[in-house]
Design a binder for these strands. Structure first.
Lengths: 150, 150
DNA sequence: CCGAATCCGTTGCGATACTG
DNA sequence: CAGTATCGCAACGGATTCGG
């Protein structure tokens, strides 16, 4: 599929807290959601402990929380097997699978440009005024931006 | 450029806190960043107050904070004009402009699938164990916790 | 006009311990 | 095995006030 070129919304839409883009970002912007979706999209269904082991660092409470919200939003399904050793599996719904596209876009951007971001960040942090000037000439001499950030 | 199909990372990479995807999400996952980038990508440069008015609801402190971090990461440039009426403009760097691609992907997904998410959410919230149907086709009944199989 | 400084409420996240 | 219960911190965001 070809990447369509930036059909962004208008200002008014963007300011709307109910704007879908805002809602989507609130949804995937948390710490673990994307990670969970990514793991499930690579192999599913997955069991609880399997996910917990795979993610390594997440607290069970938080994983449950994340999965519950994901289930609530129709992104994953939860299947309980009434067996003697308790068994619960999580799977991605088609809706959840559709998330792979935007996530992949983010991933591709990150892979491509994140080094630049990190570089700029490091540069800004160490020497705030180190020779990176836009060479912007004209109107009124732009003063160098040097603000203490306590 | 060939459109690669979902080149997701491996588990180990995903668990890495330094994983670029994670870092990128931490970066754009906050409340206002995407909004600011979107406004700047539609028209720039923009003045501080201009942005504040456009976003409508953001506190000056938070806007400053957001812009500072964005500047630090090389996504926007800040230009101070040493004039009697203080004037500061913000502009998107090429790096910042590159963010439009993933943001557009998110936007497109949100526009496409967010209604389903909201529908599933409402359905899940209202009737957890009454086979209720919102009459809004598209999403299958999420029979939440009762998906027992043997 | 462009912010910085301060205070404060909310909430996500984490650690540990315990249960069906 | 798959969670729940409880506690608590720390970071984010909001409102207000003051300064250059």
């Amino acid at each position: 599929m070809v990447t369509k070129q930036v059909p962004l919304k208008s200002d008014e839409d963007l300011n709307d807290p109910n704007c879908h883009t805002r809602l989507a970002l609130d949804r995937i912007g948390d710490k673990w959601t994307v990670l969970v979706v990514l793991h499930l999209s690579r192999r599913s269904p997955r069991r609880f402990t399997e996910l917990r082991e795979a993610i390594a660092g997440i607290a069970p409470k938080v994983l449950t929380q994340t999965l519950r919200t994901l289930e609530r939003d129709g992104i994953v399904t939860r299947t309980v097997y009434a067996e003697v050793p308790p068994k619960v599996t999580y799977d991605l719904t088609p809706l959840g699978a559709s998330l792979r596209t935007p996530i992949a876009a983010i991933h591709r951007w990150a892979h491509h440009y994140m080094p630049e971001v990190l570089d700029a960040r490091a540069d800004h942090d160490s020497g705030l005024d180190s020779g990176l000037d836009s060479g912007h000439g004209g109107v009124s001499a732009p003063r160098s931006r040097r603000t203490s950030r306590a």
